[in-house]
Design a protein around this nucleic acid. Structure first.
Lengths: 223, 223
DNA sequence: AAAATAATTTAGCCAAGCCTAAATAACAAT
DNA sequence: ATTGTTATTTAGGCTTGGCTAAATTATTTT
């Protein structure tokens, strides 16, 4: 029935899933994200499209998107990954900057039984430690209504929803600033040319943040 | 320095370790245990012996044993495996017959950090759910002084130490009998020809057990 | 000791996933 | 429209860890 979906394939599906949020994923972008030569990506895409059932829609030179089967497989891996991240933090005392790598290795090998048990022991959490939503057991995801921190303007208040980064150093930095999911923030000032944002973070001092940070933190702006 | 030790190599080392408890491991025995053709084993053994440092002592037609480096690597994997089995039972509510398969997949991918955290959270256990000793963090193992249940004779009492099996069905059966590590038993009768043993298991009725069982359960006989 | 059997090794092959180098297609700019 | 640039694909190879079939070595039996 379903051809075995190798760890490598799972990684491709994950990457295609996140890159094709905005349209189609390009060969180059995938190669960059996967740390692999573009030619290798082409080869794999051809293979994924030739599987029965196909996991991707692929036509030469036109990027790639997931089929329904591909998306299902991707969401299964993403659920594993995010549940694991939550479990590592909640139950084993990992810090949020150390979980990504471990989850990346574990996500390919845990059983559905394991998945269910950690989900249960965590009380079926809806978000991982970075604020990313965890696909439910039937693989549905809530609609995302957050906007970028960098789009806030002076006077607006918001709650941090999600931090998009796997870089331990950046995550530690954000943690030290208190810029973590749930944090209350208020925009104080915006510099038009460098796009810096001066931000007041509840229970921490005000800070000036560049776009490298503000474009990767997502917030829900207060009404 | 150390060439990367792939999951496949780890499996070979594990198998060589347990098979060479009694002397040297043969190509055929390894093939059988690993579920692989004998020719594949030969190929891998040649490779393991050619690594720098070599992981095995190997000479054509003469079986194989681990080098110091090979044994270290084997014990690391075994520590992972047994700690994981303990963790799955203690912290995630697995039954003892379901942990082997999961641990077999996880053992190759967990980090030293993960290992340390589960060891700590379990209070550095000395045995896994089947009674197998867990190598300590510095990879030492206690000397085993147990004997086979099948060697008990009427009148002797003992405590079950260890059950050697990965077969879920057998483990469930033993669990139902109460024949688990820690159980107190007394030999009532021994049939010389079929080697059956009639055993009284504390808090359970007496049962007659064949050698398929009694040779795979290890006990410490009371003085 | 020779022959039969069993165990092991060699030889040659395959699939998965990666690589580099060369060819081609798409896109942008004059 | 032609040229240059960039993105992508093709072609050919490599490594890992398997496989089968045939050859060889070891062991047992007669």
């Amino acid at each position: 029935m379903t051809e075995s979906i190798s760890p490598s394939i799972q990684d491709y599906l994950k990457s295609i899933y996140s890159l094709s949020g905005s349209g189609e994923a390009s060969t180059n972008a995938l190669a960059l994200r996967l740390g692999v030569a573009p030619a290798s990506v082409t080869g794999m895409l051809q293979k994924l499209a030739a599987l029965r059932p196909p996991l991707v829609h692929y036509q030469k030179h036109q990027g790639v998107t997931l089929t329904a089967a591909g998306e299902k497989a991707a969401l299964e891996v993403i659920r594993h990954h995010r549940l694991l991240e939550a479990y590592l933090v909640e139950s084993l005392g990992y810090s949020w900057d150390a979980v990504h790598e471990e989850a990346c290795r574990l996500e390919h090998v845990i059983s559905e039984d394991f998945e269910q048990r950690i989900a249960e022991s965590l009380g079926h959490p809806e978000r991982d430690p970075h604020g990313d939503p965890i696909p439910s057991a039937n693989l549905s995801l809530p609609h995302d209504i957050s906007s970028k921190l960098g789009e806030m303007r002076p006077g607006q208040s918001a709650v941090v929803q999600r931090v998009r980064s796997d870089d331990p150093a950046l995550l530690r930095h954000l943690g030290a600033l208190g810029l973590i999911p749930g944090a209350q923030v208020r925009a104080l000032e915006h510099s038009p040319f460098d796009d810096n944002l001066t931000l007041e973070i509840a229970s921490h001092g005000p800070v000036v943040l560049g776009p490298a940070i503000t474009l990767n933190v997502f917030v829900e702006v207060a009404p």
